[in-house]
């Protein structure tokens, strides 16, 4: 997606300039630089931002301290995830998480973590914020790292003795990392 970044840069700046003119903001008495034309909104403290800033991105930014192993993850998964995803992450009834390699070109593609997800960091972002479904944000960072380790091991992405933490997770190469292309539409003519 690096192409997107360079492509978006200039139009964005141009867009803002056009917008400022369109909105007539430039004619407001106060400088746009101090952002206080309207005197609304208050500065966020670092502490507030830390509490709200829960996303995790591919380079690992946002990953908290802590670590987990496949063995610990098996326990977490069995007690907190298996009811919806099945004992081995393949049975459901909810999303299948394991397996599905070499199915993406078939009539029944299985889009699992191992077969489809391009970034390992997405696992932390998603599991931490949204899982388990009945108690989101209830897992500790160690539990989250552990269950990620188990899921990656089940998908044969990491070794059984691997330790997953803020340093190792962003380095995990996902099998379908190069499986995505930027939107080429309109593609049907």
């Amino acid at each position: 997606m690096d192409g997107y970044a360079t492509y978006m840069h200039k139009p964005m700046v141009a867009g803002i300039v056009v917008l400022l003119m369109a909105l007539g903001v430039v004619s407001f008495g106060r400088s746009a630089e101090d952002g206080t034309e309207y005197g609304l909104g208050r500065p966020a403290t670092d502490e507030e931002i830390r509490a709200w800033n829960i996303d995790v991105v591919p380079n690992g930014e946002g990953l908290p301290p802590g670590k987990g192993t496949v063995k610990q993850g098996a326990q977490v998964f069995a007690t907190k995830c298996a009811a919806c995803h099945g004992a081995t992450g393949t049975e459901g009834p909810k999303d299948r998480l394991v397996g599905g390699q070499n199915t993406l070109t078939t009539a029944k593609p299985a889009r699992t973590i191992g077969s489809y997800w391009p970034y390992a960091t997405t696992l932390y972002d998603y599991i931490h914020r949204a899982m388990p479904f009945n108690a989101p944000q209830s897992l500790t960072s160690d539990e989250t790292y552990s269950v990620i380790a188990w899921l990656l091991f089940q998908n044969q992405v990491i070794a059984e003795d691997a330790v997953i933490d803020a340093q190792t997770l962003p380095k995990v190469q996902m099998p379908n990392r190069n499986g995505f292309i930027p939107d080429p539409r309109p593609d049907v003519r």
């Binding site: 996303d55 991105v57 499986g179 939107d183």
Partner: peptide
């Protein structure tokens, strides 16, 4: 300065093509 690559724009809401590649950020 880059997409955040959340579950919703990778595992979901991407369009799988016959060759096994998927359109990403097909937003319109």
């Amino acid at each position: 300065s880059a997409p955040f690559m959340t579950r919703w724009e990778t595992a979901k809401y991407t369009d799988l093509m016959p060759d096994g590649k998927a359109y990403q950020f097909s937003l319109v």
